[in-house]
Design a binder for these strands. Sequence first.
DNA 1: ACGTTTTGCCAAAACGTCTTGGCATAGATA
DNA 2: TATCTATGCCAAGACGTTTTGGCAAAACGT
Lengths: 348, 348
Amino acid sequence: MAVKSAGIRDVAQLAGVSVTTVSHVLNDTPNMRVSVETRARVRHAAKTLGYGPNRMAQALRTNRSGLIGLLSEEIATTPHAGRIILGAQNAAREHDLTLVIINTERDAGGTSHRDDVQALIDRQVDAVLYATMYHRSVSLPPNLQDLPAVLIDSTDRAGIVPAVVPDEVGGAVAAVTHLVEAGHTRIGFLNNDDDVPATHLRFAGYRQVLQAHDIPFDEDLVFSAPSETLPGYGLARELLGRSDRPTALFCYNDRMAMGAYRAATELGLEIPRDLSIVGFDNQELIAANLFPGLTTVALPHYEMGVWAVETLVHLLHGEAEYRLIADKPALLDCPLVIRGSVAQPRAN
Amino acid sequence: MAVKSAGIRDVAQLAGVSVTTVSHVLNDTPNMRVSVETRARVRHAAKTLGYGPNRMAQALRTNRSGLIGLLSEEIATTPHAGRIILGAQNAAREHDLTLVIINTERDAGGTSHRDDVQALIDRQVDAVLYATMYHRSVSLPPNLQDLPAVLIDSTDRAGIVPAVVPDEVGGAVAAVTHLVEAGHTRIGFLNNDDDVPATHLRFAGYRQVLQAHDIPFDEDLVFSAPSETLPGYGLARELLGRSDRPTALFCYNDRMAMGAYRAATELGLEIPRDLSIVGFDNQELIAANLFPGLTTVALPHYEMGVWAVETLVHLLHGEAEYRLIADKPALLDCPLVIRGSVAQPRAN
DNA sequence: ACGTTTTGCCAAAACGTCTTGGCATAGATA
DNA sequence: TATCTATGCCAAGACGTTTTGGCAAAACGT
């Protein structure tokens, strides 16, 4: 079945040179001394034999496996992880690296995470990507310091490892600005009640926009609850039932927005005529399938995957200073995705 | 940074034996001849040094990399791919194999898929998993025959490669039976209109249940449209607007079911009191977030990932005959996930 | 006591590549 | 012409394992 493929020796023989020369030519060894004709002959021979280097032998000799490990929480639960993988994979391929994936449990106690990292180290990965399911601050397993690493969607509590996270504030600013520019001034905010960065940062973005537009902040317009559909429904029900109800809602995430849709329907409010809504996360399955489509903010999962791999490559090539990058987490843009849930407020 | 770890030589030295002996002991080489005491000494030495074998050297020597490639379509688009990855990864880990993932484009023309397979071969994977995004029949790139392979969620048009797919008929039977057992006899079916296996098989399951329960098949209760929310809404609207409307709906997938929910709401039908609905796919984001939760059929993505890896392992160990397995695709169970969208039909 | 088997261990080769330190020849410099 | 430098190439060792074929010593059989 598996056909034994040509080795460097076969190429050497066909080209009539030594293996040394073949290696030099195919690797473009800096300041090698091989005549132009010989190079051509070698390249030709390699091509006709369909030669590809044996990665294992290469790895053994050079001590670089070309593998990079992606440690990802809960791959299954969310499409987000998928986009990270996709971005990382594409970037890796660009640099002739191979992505190996290990799933890890979110809140596994004890040495579980350390074991996962160790599993990757045992497999000779050159570096590791550590991706969490949502933006938060983590304390890292100690053995992660044994090799280059980059954090995705989380920051190192100790501030030692480079990290990339979404620009939550910017995303919230984009969302709320969109509402303000449509003419809204009474904008409710259905926030998450977990103590995670996103909670505070999206709220900060919300306030920032109000202030920039001289809209007074009204704390009666801000409610918090677990970031699920049902609590979102409950909150929206309450907020929209009031006589001085807001004309627009900014929701912590798309699931809460989904709940708000239901509340609006039940109260006889038509979206976006009577109520504008903006979500966060751009969960296609929800946002694109609601009626009307939910205008929301996209998280840059794909881009974070790419960024992380690119950064690793720089690190591995020694082109970048580890500490320098680790200093501040990189912020990636959260673009607004406009669908159909925002309109001008109805002239009373 | 990366600490150079102990090699087999260090272990040998510490234990006072030759590397040969160490290798034998640690690999449990069949009918090796090493005294019990020596084994203990070697094991102890290995442990104290924290020895782990260099996989690259191992791979080079044994010509087995321990890598298995997962070629997956459109990782990003769907959580389904995530569950396949998760299952495959867990099973791989169980067998001390490492999963490397390559994303491929769904309908990429030309030699694209062949190139993807080649990329994996070039990376010395021992075998490959080929996963498609939804159940269908494919023609495989020729170089996939150069090494063991298993198909996930698709079948080989040529019938050469082993495959595992969901038991669509069984799933549909479970869904419709659930409705029948709740007392429904007028059950509408909102089907997909693509010519893919699932379309025909789920329909077959639907008919099968009717027949088994002596319920006459009424073709006016079966509608087809693209399997999206909006078409689902349209179909449901039409079907439910009629005077002799069905008391229950079986939907091709959860998105169509989501559309049906909306139609029901607009027509003043309360789910499940006035209308029972069963979906297919168990897309958590939709099914768990609708009101009430959607009873639906789960696809065995995780299980297919596991099955595929297990099968590969058997193949690699030569414990199973390739042709034998390839003969018929394996069918995996599609269990019913009961939430809140089914009830007895209302006594008129 | 002598051959034979079994037990316990090891030396050395091999896997396919990269890399160091050469050695010739040709051209340049004196 | 004699020396020096640059050019073009190669032999051989190393990376860390596994595996083959052995060799002593101990155990066994007669």
